Simulated assay, not measured.
Amino acid sequence: MRVGFDAKRIFHNITGLGNYSRDTVRIMSSYFSKNSYFLYNPKPGKIDRLKIADNLKVCFPKSKVWQKLNSLWRQKAIVKDLVSDKIEIYHGLTNELPVGIETTNIKTVVTIHDLIFVRYPELYSYIDGKIHYKKFKRAAQVADKVIAISEQTKRDIVEFLQVSPTKIEVVYQGCHSAFQKDYTSKEKEQVAKKYDLPNKYLLNVGTIQERKNLLTIVKAIKNTNHYLVVVGKETNYADKVKAYIKENNMQNRVCFLKGVSMEELAIIYQKTSIFIYPSIFEGFGIPIVEALYSKTPVISSVGSCFSEAGGPDSIYIEPHDDLALLKEINRIENDTLLQDKMKEQGWNYAQQFNDTVIANAIMDLYKGL
């Protein structure tokens, strides 16, 4: 089988969409190694987080014209290259499909991650919201199959994009293999020393933006001795959070880490006492799965997809209720039996997101086409 992937974010994105794209390609090329996989990349990238196996081929625009107009190539002109390369299935990994591919014999799959721009339009500019909606809806309607990364996302696709539920398959995201490894005491000590981590701390991971709701965690621990470690790309919202931290003299109890490698992040997860993810809405919530694999207790939000990711033994609160959050933090930290249960049952629940399950689900979908 000759499978093509939209590989832009594999080589140009270090956050959620990039991680999903890299993990999907890594899993498929490993578990079904006899296939040929073509990674269509509009231009050389600076991100080198995917090992290029023998069955992977990175493809750039073939003509000099489209090498210069690479964004347009990805949107439409790429179709000619796909036909030339005899691609049998093309998988748009991040919500999009090129215009015109529906006129070829190539079977198509698109992964839709979330429709947050529809549910919370105030978080996006008017123009961005309109562009996203047009691209997502067209891709979902012309694709032969749609992958939703959660049941929540599937419901949103049906409701907002008017796509038949029979066309949509839910295939959960996994997480990077780094989070599924055990690390030595020496490795953990090295990371703790490098980032000056205390023996006990709370953890939040994710882009620091309003929807992720970091400020609620900071408010919850304001009058306590809890220490918070934050790992994530900063946006303007981070300034708001840091201003609150400064106003309340919390600078010595909240630290923001940058330049953390995937292996270092996995160790940071494994050393934390509680992972806290009070996001307002997500398509799935992969940091929750990373925490479960790390055998770390999780506190997240009620609603959205969070219980799908966290399972029945994580704890869920109203996202803006800082008093409820503090209560649950203290309850977990003061109850070793509860900690042990959350760690073990959480890890067991996370096994449905392992590489084998995901690989087989995607390949079954490909074969069905």
Rank of each mutant, 00 (worst) to 15 (best):
G45C: 10
G45R: 07
K46G: 07
I47G: 12
I47V: 10
I47K: 00
D48C: 13
D48L: 09
R49W: 08
R49D: 08
L50H: 00
K51Q: 15
K51R: 15
I52Q: 11
D54C: 14
D54N: 15
N55W: 03
N55H: 00
V58Y: 06
V58K: 01
V58M: 00
C59P: 03
F60K: 02
F60N: 00
F60S: 09
P61G: 05
P61Q: 14
S63C: 05
S63T: 13
K64C: 09
K64D: 14
V65K: 15
W66Y: 04
Q67T: 10
K68S: 02
L69R: 01
L69A: 03
S71E: 11
L72Q: 15
W73E: 02
W73L: 02
W73Y: 06
Q75A: 00
Q75L: 14
K76N: 12
K76R: 10
A77K: 06
V79G: 08
V79S: 01
K80Y: 11
K80R: 11
L82C: 04
L82H: 03
L82S: 11
V83F: 14
S84R: 14
D85T: 11
D85V: 10
K86G: 12
K86L: 13
E88G: 11
I89M: 11
Y90I: 09
Y90A: 02
H91G: 06
H91V: 15
G92Y: 12
L93P: 14
N95K: 11
N95D: 11
L97T: 05
P98I: 00
T103V: 11
T104I: 08
T104F: 08
N105F: 07
N105A: 12
I106S: 04
T108E: 07
T108H: 10
T111E: 10
I112D: 04
H113K: 14
D114I: 06
I116P: 06
I116R: 04
F117L: 00
V118W: 01
V118N: 01
P121E: 04
Y124H: 05
Y124S: 05
Y126Q: 05
I127E: 07
I127W: 14
D128C: 02
D128Q: 12
D128F: 08
D128W: 03
K130Q: 03
K130V: 05
K130C: 07
K135P: 05
F136N: 08
R138G: 06
A140V: 09
A140R: 06
Q141F: 04
Q141W: 00
Q141R: 13
Q141L: 13
Q141P: 09
V142C: 03
A143P: 02
A143Q: 04
D144R: 00
D144L: 01
K145F: 07
K145S: 13
K145M: 13
V146T: 00
I147L: 13
I147K: 09
I147V: 14
A148I: 02
A148E: 06
I149W: 08
E151K: 07
T153L: 04
K154T: 04
K154A: 03
R155G: 01
D156Y: 10
I157D: 09
V158E: 03
V158R: 08
F160Y: 05
F160C: 02
L161K: 06
Q162L: 12
V163C: 12
V163I: 09
V163E: 07
S164T: 06
S164R: 03
S164A: 08
P165W: 04
T166D: 15
T166S: 15
K167V: 15
K167Y: 10
K167R: 13
I168H: 06
E169L: 14
V170C: 01
V170Y: 01
V171M: 02
